[in-house]
Simulated scan of single mutants.
Amino acid sequence: MSLKERINEDMKAAMRAKQAERLSTVRLLLAAIKQKEIDERIALDDAGVTAVIDKMIKQRRDSIAQYDGAGRTDLADKERAELAVLSAYLPRALSADEIAALIREAVAETGAAGPKDMGKVMAWLKPKLAGRADMQAVSAQVKAALS
Rank of each mutant, 00 (worst) to 15 (best):
D54C: 00
D54N: 06
K55G: 08
K55T: 04
K55Y: 05
K58G: 00
K58F: 01
R60L: 03
R60P: 01
D62L: 13
D62S: 11
S63T: 13
S63I: 04
S63A: 13
I64T: 11
I64P: 03
Q66C: 08
Q66T: 09
Y67S: 12
Y67Q: 06
G69F: 04
A70Y: 00
A70W: 00
G71E: 07
G71A: 01
T73H: 00
T73N: 01
D74F: 10
L75E: 00
L75H: 01
D77F: 03
D77R: 00
K78L: 14
K78E: 08
K78S: 09
E79Y: 06
R80Q: 12
R80T: 10
A81D: 14
E82K: 09
L83Q: 02
L83W: 05
L83V: 08
L83P: 00
A84E: 01
A84K: 12
L86W: 01
S87P: 02
A88K: 12
Y89L: 02
P91L: 05
P91G: 10
R92C: 10
L94F: 11
S95Q: 13
I99E: 02
A100D: 12
A100F: 03
A100Y: 04
A101E: 15
A101D: 08
A101K: 03
A101M: 11
E105N: 07
E105Q: 12
E105Y: 07
A106S: 07
A106W: 04
A106I: 08
A108C: 07
E109G: 11
E109K: 11
T110Q: 04
T110N: 04
G111E: 08
G111M: 11
G111K: 12
A112P: 04
A112E: 07
A113V: 14
G114D: 15
G114S: 14
K116T: 13
K116E: 13
D117T: 05
D117Y: 06
D117N: 11
D117H: 04
M118Y: 13
M118Q: 12
M118K: 13
M118C: 10
M118I: 15
G119V: 15
K120T: 13
K120R: 15
K120D: 14
